[in-house]
């Protein structure tokens, strides 16, 4: 039971981190119709920028400056890159962000090399917050939860209580109408892209010390971010939140509980062939839940898309 509670908390951390990426991505998608393949690359840039800043002035300045820097880069890329490609249609746009992801990874290697960087959590948070049956919960992870929650609340406030937010919300549902009403859509696009990438950057800043700061970090997270927003329903912020938490918990529990196919098959009345390494069914018999944990989100996505192409909470079809 205590392990279960720890897993709930760990899954929450993973899910909220995922949400910090997904919220920006889904905003960008809803506004601009662009699935930004390079979104996780901005997350990586956030971690590297914060690492570089932490070499000179510690963790906390990076927490502020790195996301802003990432957001500015994102806005510039929108202005001078994406907008140019926009007129060719959505597929070239997607391909552009795909190329951008490759380019950012190469650029990161160009500047910082290929090894993992020693980007560490601040010493002030380097202690165990509490302990459940021998499992310690690091204070830094509590901090991550607070930052993600804070971001979510700020986002919610902006979207529901401010004028800018109203425009964005309207554009989520009725993009053409908003444009017709004479809002400066290109400016809004640039702003949304900048803010979305800045949020990814912030996720990178706080995730870098835990998940590692290395050139492969974007690739490792890249496609799972897509999967999450597709499951949640493109364009739905709540859908993104719920899907993020769902995937966070699925991955945590799948890694923890060692459900074995052998037990399932035996309980169904099959007998295990011996010797097992000689059997054509060896792979089925030795299958365990942790082995397939990381691909469960993809399986879930394919099923969701086949059954309900607009995703769990999406309103309009893609």
């Amino acid at each position: 039971m205590s392990l279960f509670i720890v897993n709930i908390l760990d899954g929450l951390v993973t899910g909220l981190l995922l949400f910090m990426l997904c919220s920006g991505l889904t905003l960008i998608f809803s506004m601009m119709g662009v699935l930004n393949f390079a979104h996780a690359s901005f997350y990586m840039l956030g971690a590297y920028f914060a690492y570089q800043i932490s070499l000179f002035s510690g963790f906390w300045l990076g927490l502020i400056v790195a996301p802003i820097a990432v957001g500015v880069i994102g806005a510039l890329i929108e202005r001078y890159g994406l907008r140019r490609v926009h007129k060719y249609g959505h597929v070239p746009e997607l391909i552009f962000t795909f190329g951008l992801a490759l380019l950012i990874e190469e650029a990161v290697q160009f500047f910082w090399g290929k090894s993992q960087q020693a980007y560490e959590a601040p010493e002030a948070l380097d202690f165990a917050a509490f302990q459940i049956a021998g499992n310690t919960f690091p204070a830094y992870k509590l901090f991550m939860i607070f930052v993600a929650m804070g971001l979510f609340l700020v986002l919610l406030y902006i979207l529901t209580k401010t004028r800018v937010g109203m425009t964005i919300q309207a554009a989520l549902s009725y993009p053409e109408t908003v444009q017709n009403l004479g809002h400066n859509v290109p400016m809004v696009f640039m702003g949304v892209f900048g803010v979305g990438t800045a949020m990814a950057g912030l996720a990178g800043v706080i995730a870098g010390p835990v998940l590692g700061t290395f050139p492969g970090m974007a690739f490792l997270l890249g496609s799972i971010v897509f999967v999450t927003i597709v499951i949640g329903g493109l364009g739905s912020l709540w859908g993104a939140l719920i899907a993020s938490l769902l995937i966070g918990w699925i991955q945590t529990f799948a890694a923890t509980y060692n459900v074995r196919m052998e037990d399932i098959l035996t309980s169904l009345g099959f007998t295990k062939p011996e010797p097992i390494w000689d059997s054509a069914w060896q792979d089925l018999w030795t299958l365990t839940l942790p082995q397939i944990g990381p691909i469960l989100p993809y399986l879930l996505m394919v099923i969701v898309l086949v059954v309900r192409p607009q995703g769990l909470f999406g309103k309009r079809e893609t």
């Binding site: 699935l35 496609s223 999967v227 597709v230 493109l234 993809y298 394919v302 898309l305 086949v306 893609t318």
Partner: peptide, 12 residues
Amino acid sequence: TVFAMISLGVGE
């Protein structure tokens, strides 16, 4: 997008 995402999922 639906086709693209299914192809990504199946590929993975």
